[in-house]
């Protein structure tokens, strides 16, 4: 049952294919990394020092783009109602959706962080920290994303609102994930991973409650 759900969610969210999502968030991510040197000038040491932070901001913004497709279409279709009738808890449904959302954007994001790092001229050590940090932080971003999408799915103008709501919640991940770049060691990444884990643990319950609340409006 869970496997069937995951298969359907991946079909909905993975880039490419007839029913799949788009590569737009990734192209957006690469575009930000590409535009940054044009904006601040071709000063290589400056780019290398600030590039890691730019990659983090770009990743955060890219994770906002698919939010309106995460929950709202299925809520409208009545898929969540039908799953609830079959005794599948809303929490399980949200947990599966978080997994699918993470799988659909994080691996590709990590992959495109490499060309982005090359564009910004990051050093090897920084690239390693950015990659590790993104690996630790993206599950948390996925959890926040699905949670916010569930909260705002039944509201008008939910898409714009969800972006605004995601940013403050993502601040801890950003502080510790990108902060490890300034210190140059992985201790910040450990904290970033801890925050990610907490968010992944909370999100199914918060998202499930949001689905139930949406059902009664």
């Amino acid at each position: 049952m869970i496997w069937q759900l995951l298969r359907r969610d991946l079909g909905l969210l993975l880039p490419g294919g007839k029913s799949g999502g788009t590569l737009l968030p990734l192209l957006f991510f690469l575009a930000v990394a590409m535009l940054y040197p044009f904006a601040v000038g071709p000063d290589a040491p400056l780019l290398a020092r600030t590039g890691g932070g730019v990659i983090w901001i770009a990743a955060l913004l890219a994770s906002i783009l698919p939010l309106d497709r995460l929950i709202a279409p299925d809520l409208e279709l009545g898929v969540f109602d039908q799953l609830a009738l079959r005794g599948i808890s809303d929490e399980a449904v949200i947990a599966v959706r978080i997994t699918a959302h993470w799988l659909s954007f994080a691996p590709l994001l990590l992959f495109s962080a490499l060309p982005a790092a090359a564009l910004l001229g990051l050093e090897d050590g920084s690239v390693r920290l950015v990659m590790l940090g993104l690996l630790a932080g993206t599950p948390g971003l996925a959890a926040i994303g699905v949670m916010i999408a569930a909260l705002t799915a039944s509201l008008r103008g939910g898409a714009a609102l969800s972006g605004l709501m995601l940013i403050p919640l993502a601040v801890p991940i950003l502080i510790f994930g990108a902060g490890s770049l300034a210190r140059g060691d992985a201790s910040g990444i450990a904290l970033c991973a801890a925050i990610s884990l907490v968010l992944v643990a909370i999100a199914p319950f918060a998202g499930g409650a949001a689905l139930r609340a949406a059902r009664e409006t």
């Binding site: 279709l77 898929v79 109602d81 009738l85 009664e216």
Partner: peptide
């Protein structure tokens, strides 16, 4: 169906329930 809470009273049923309403719950793109 158990999707809404009644204002008062309760629903008792044995066995699973299937609901047909205005939402088809079938993926439009498939």
């Amino acid at each position: 169906a158990g999707l809404l809470r009644p204002y008062s009273g309760s629903v008792q049923r044995t066995g699973t329930v299937a609901l047909l309403d205005e939402n088809p719950a079938l993926d439009p793109q498939l």
